[in-house]
Design a protein around this nucleic acid. Structure first.
Ligand SMILES: Nc1ncnc2c1ncn2[C@@H]1O[C@H](COP(=O)(O)OP(=O)(O)OP(=O)(O)O)[C@@H](O)[C@H]1O
Length: 683
DNA sequence: GCGACGAGTATTTTT
DNA sequence: TACTCGTCGC
């Protein structure tokens, strides 16, 4: 078996590790994912471990699929029974399997973020809370953070009157989820933990069952995930985790970097392996990446070396605004296309909104591209509307889906009828659907809706059900009447959904709506991404684990990367790691760019300065870094910040004061440039 | 009682 | 831009 020939000494040691917990702490591109994959092969083929006793956790479903594919190539044993997937999909599977020990059914629904938001708004409305005073996204985040820390609605100790109201929402939110036979993403983890914590029999069974547990991207696990792993590893302590503290970028979602930093203390009998050889990038790229990330304090240092050649310098360029940045970017990109395929190139940015300018330019130049993220297919209004019908018909307790379709398309059920249904249900302690059926007796508009739903019940095949929904609600017909470009594209999406559903029934030979819903519930953007011959566009977060010969990182301006919010929240180190992750995706060549003027809309008057991260690179490694003026450099690195002071200059016009330097000089941002001028000049 | 329309405001990353 | 909130006409 030539398996071990494709690994270096350090990797082989890790792959062959036996007996107790292990942490593989290693930098970017050192083959961590490869070690996990080959270790599974080793366990199955050499150690005779049955695949179904191995649990492998990846960060995305996509990563799981790729690993599976790789494994099928490497192993002749049937691996169908291997547990491989994300924490969330593993938890969903456990919770469905052990449903008798939970208050949920086998077919519980998974609420996505939109559903969560809608439910929270509905509850706030019932509790007479103003969205001005309590922004729903803030409540959602609070609840999510609590759940990731395994604090339930009763344990939550509110501080201050605002939090008391948030606690009310949290309690009601959980009650409604239970009534709806639904869980949000965080509940998948929390409920699994609860199951393991409260039911020793189940815990022991799973612990005993999973002889080997392997976790990729361990640096981005949160407390709930950590506790689940702990519960599963009390007897079978073969917990094998790999990660890189410098690549922890999901703190906002509760990922806790101390999970990896403190692994040694948590598992004192663990063995630590380090992989130091990088197989991906040139020396230049590694040096640049390392010179950036070494500015972080919260990290375990690592060495990383490569036998690759030195490689070309990184290239820095800019543009006045996002559009001109994109224009310049595409110029470089076209040069790269002379000796690269489109699929060798990736463009990464901090926020989804940044893709717009770049897309426009690529479209203009006729360069095919593929975009990951943004508005996902399954989140588009028309798709969610129709899926909500299927969801509700499959589960009449699902109040969120019901509430969504109640007046979609418009059928005259507005604020008043809605409130009446809500309070009627509340009063009688019955579900929304039961309330609707009772009210239908004296309200023809409502009884029409009940009739509509009845006519859709008892359709067994999901493809037929979808067709019937479209037909009976007139969804496409109404869009057709609108006769706008927008409506036409919605119709296209619906036809696409129809064909996706058809394919599903043919390929999977599964026909029931519930099976289809379980399939799409945990789908994400990156999962759908395919390496066809297009340039790839995605957020830096989505680049995790990928590699490309040529990488562009756009928008390296202060307040973009690092993002304004992160500067305010003091999470600069995570932003720096994000930049580090982006840099280390590249095999050969990196382009960096920034822009000076914010786009249209809010804050468009704001001028931006180059990102502080650029100055953590050496101009020996980066072409174009020297071009940034001395003034701009000073502006980023020093001086006293000023807010909202403007000056008028006879030549440069109106300018915003950014900083005061040495007490007597002002650093001013005029349209398109930054100047340092004596304070006296303006008095 | 419903919904169209205009005014005003917020502002990231995702399983 | 995109979404919420308040007003007004049907
Ligand atoms: N021993 C090896 N010989 C040749 N190539 C290797 C070896 N180990 C890893 N590689 C290659 O190096 C690249 C990076 O490997 P992998 O994705 O496993 O690293 P990683 O540590 O998970 O990276 P990251 O943390 O940056 O996502 C891949 O292209 C992989 O095929």
């Amino acid at each position: 078996m030539g398996l071990l020939e494709e690994l270096n000494e350090e990797q082989i040691k890790a792959v062959k590790h036996l007996g107790g917990p292990a942490l593989i702490l290693a930098g970017a591109g050192s083959g961590k994912t490869r070690v996990i994959t080959y270790r599974i092969v080793y366990l199955v083929e050499q150690k005779g471990i049955s695949p179904d006793r191995i649990l492998a956790v990846t960060f995305t479903n996509k990563a799981a699929d790729e690993m599976k594919e790789r494994l099928y190539d490497l192993v002749s044993t049937n691996l169908k029974s291997l547990w491989i997937g994300t924490f969330h999909s593993m938890c969903a599977r456990i919770l469905r399997e052990y449903r008798e020990t939970t208050p949920f059914s086998r077919n519980f629904v998974i609420y996505d973020e939109q559903d969560q938001g809608n439910l929270i708004k509905r509850i706030m409305n019932n509790l007479d809370m103003r969205e001005k005073e309590f922004p729903p996204y803030y409540i959602k985040r609070t609840i999510s953070n609590l759940k990731n820390r395994l604090i339930d609605e009763h344990e939550f100790e509110p501080m201050g009157s605002k939090q008391i109201r948030i606690k009310e929402v949290y309690i009601e939110y959980q009650r409604k989820l239970l009534d709806s036979d639904a869980m949000d993403f965080d509940d998948l983890l929390f409920n699994t933990y609860r199951l393991l914590n409260s039911n020793e029999g189940v815990r022991r069974e799973l612990d005993r069952h999973f002889k080997h547990k392997l976790v990729d991207e361990y640096q981005d696990t949160n407390h709930a995930q950590y506790m689940i792993l702990k519960k599963l590893s009390m007897k079978n302590r073969d917990l094998f985790v790999v990660g890189d503290d410098d690549q922890s970028i999901y703190g906002f979602r509760g990922a806790d970097i101390s999970n990896i930093l403190d692994f040694e203390e948590d598992f004192p009998d663990c063995k630590i392996y380090r992989l130091e050889r990088n197989y991906r990038s040139t020396q230049r790229i590694l040096r640049a990446a390392s010179s950036v990330v070494k500015h972080n304090k919260e990290r375990k240092g690592k060495t990383l070396w490569t036998l690759e050649n030195e490689g070309g310098k990184l290239t820095l360029f800019n543009g006045y605004d996002e559009n001109s940045e994109a224009r310049n970017m595409v110029k470089f990109l076209k040069e790269e296309l002379l000796n690269h395929k489109r699929s060798d190139i990736m463009i990464a940015y901090r926020t989804n909104a940044q893709s717009r300018a770049i897309e426009d330019e690529l479209l203009k130049e006729g360069i095919e591209y593929n975009i990951v993220g943004g508005l996902r297919f399954y989140q588009r209004k028309e798709i969610k509307d129709l899926l909500s019908y299927i969801q509700f018909i499959s589960n009449k307790r699902d109040s969120v889906s019901l509430s969504r379709i109640l007046n979609t398309p418009r059928r005259g059920i507005g604020r008043t009828r809605r409130d009446r249904i809500e309070s009627y249900a509340e009063e009688k302690r019955i579900t929304l659907w039961e309330a609707i059926k009772e009210i239908a007796r004296e309200d023809t508009i409502i009884s029409d809706f009940v009739d509509l739903i009845s006519s859709l019940e008892n359709i067994e095949r999901v493809d037929e059900l979808l067709e019937a929904i479209i037909d009976k609600t007139g969804y496409i017909r109404l869009l057709d009447e609108e006769d706008t470009v927008e409506a036409d594209s919605r119709i296209e999406n619906i036809l696409e959904l129809l064909s996706v559903v058809k394919t599903f029934t043919l390929k999977e030979e599964k026909y029931s709506p519930v099976e289809y819903l379980a399939e799409v519930g945990l789908k994400t953007d990156i999962d759908e991404w395919k390496r066809d011959d297009s340039v790839s566009l995605m957020t830096l977060h989505n680049t995790k684990g990928l590699e490309f010969p040529v990488v562009f990182i756009a928008g390296l301006s202060e307040e973009v990367l690092p993002h304004y919010r992160s500067i305010k929240d003091g999470t600069i180190e995570e932003e720096r790691r994000l930049f580090y992750v982006g840099l280390t995706r590249s095999k050969e060549k990196v382009y960096l760019s920034y822009y000076r003027k914010r786009g249209i809309g809010w804050g468009s008057s704001r001028m931006l300065i180059p990102s502080r991260f650029l100055f953590e690179l050496s101009s020996e490694d980066v072409d174009g870094l020297d071009w940034i003026s001395k003034e701009e450099r000073e502006e980023v690195l020093s001086g006293e910040s000023v807010r909202d002071e403007w000056v008028e200059h006879p030549i440069w016009g109106k300018g915003k004061v950014l900083k005061i330097i040495d007490g007597d000089k002002l650093l001013i941002s005029f349209d398109g440039m930054i100047k340092k001028i004596k304070r006296e000049f303006f008095t």
